[in-house]
């Protein structure tokens, strides 16, 4: 059985106000696994990822990173073990893309934040993997929304963390780059990383994820393989929408389910 580097136990979180964003979630992220977290808007998906990587402190439950309580691990070490790809940035700094990606090396840098040739090499490879190598010299303020999402993935790759938590990486990408990002995430998982990705795209989740976790109102309402989750009994109580269901040949042989939102 593979190791489980990231474990969330009975996680809870509340924002100011009466609602609990996350309410007693258990989630284990194993080595070599790509888990997709799906659910309607406001289900607590992003909050769950932020709890798992230490950006938010849970009001209940705990996160274990390699068997240690996340709160006891220093920020630099945490960043070397778990990387978070945000949906968007608070602000866009006017720096070159390559310099921005180099920020992902912060957890690896020495006392005076001096980068080594190895750091630069990791950055170069990460930018190639995320298909942003040609943007290195461009200012971050002058890249498109889709390019920015790939730059954010590149920066997380530069962290060389075992666990990768990705928040809606494809929301502003064209279909080609949507597939490219998920192919990359799947390849990283196949290489032994633990990847959790929040997405609204049920079909990308079906094609690439080994497991799908369904979140609604802060709770896990279903979890399992795409075949187990992408069924009317599971999805319709959560989304309240009508779907059409089908199957198509998937990656590496075998069939995968697909769902199509279809009114009428």
């Amino acid at each position: 059985m593979s190791a489980v580097p990231l474990i969330g136990r009975s996680l809870a979180h509340e924002y100011p106000g009466p609602l609990r964003a996350v309410d007693g979630v258990d989630l284990e992220l194993a080595e070599g696994e790509l888990a997709a977290v799906i659910g309607p808007n406001g289900a607590g998906k992003s909050t769950l990822l932020k709890l798992l990587c230490g950006l938010l402190t849970p009001s209940g439950g705990e996160v274990l990173l390699d068997g240690r309580a996340l709160g006891k691990i220093g920020p630099r070490e945490r960043a070397r073990r778990v990387a978070f790809v945000p949906q968007a940035l608070g602000a866009l700094p006017e720096v070159a893309v390559a310099h921005f990606v180099l920020g992902g090396r912060y957890g690896h840098l020495g006392r005076w934040s001096r980068s080594t040739p190895h750091d630069l090499d990791v950055v170069r490879v990460a930018m190639e993997q995320a298909d942003v190598a040609e943007l290195g010299e461009r200012s971050l303020t002058r890249v498109s929304g889709g390019q920015l999402q790939r730059v954010l993935v590149a920066r997380a790759l530069a962290q060389e963390a075992q666990s990768l938590l990705v928040d809606e990486p494809t929301s502003s990408l064209d279909p080609e780059h949507q597939l490219a990002i998920f192919t990359l995430l799947a390849r990283l998982a196949e290489g032994g990383r633990s990847v959790a990705v929040v997405t609204h795209d049920l079909n990308l989740a079906s094609q690439f994820a080994s497991r799908i976790v369904v979140l609604a109102a802060g709770r896990v309402v279903a979890a399992g393989t795409p075949d187990e989750v992408l069924r009317a009994e599971v999805l319709e109580p959560v989304y309240g929408a009508h779907f059409r269901y089908g199957r198509l040949p998937g990656r590496g042989g075998g069939e995968r389910p697909f769902v199509l939102p279809w009114s009428g």
Binding site: C53, G54, L55, G74, P75, R76, E77, R78, A79, R80, A83, F84, P86, L89, G90, A91, L92, P93, V95, F100, G103, G104, Y106, G107, L109, W112, S113, R155, Q159
Partner: peptide, 25 residues
């Protein structure tokens, strides 16, 4: 200054983002 210069560069994309990269904000 040597303890904050690079860290403040990472603040430019938001405090939470810097925290995610390992900065003790």
């Amino acid at each position: 200054l040597p303890l904050v210069c690079f860290e403040l560069d990472l603040f430019a994309s938001g405090e939470e983002d810097a925290h995610g990269l390992g900065v003790d904000t």
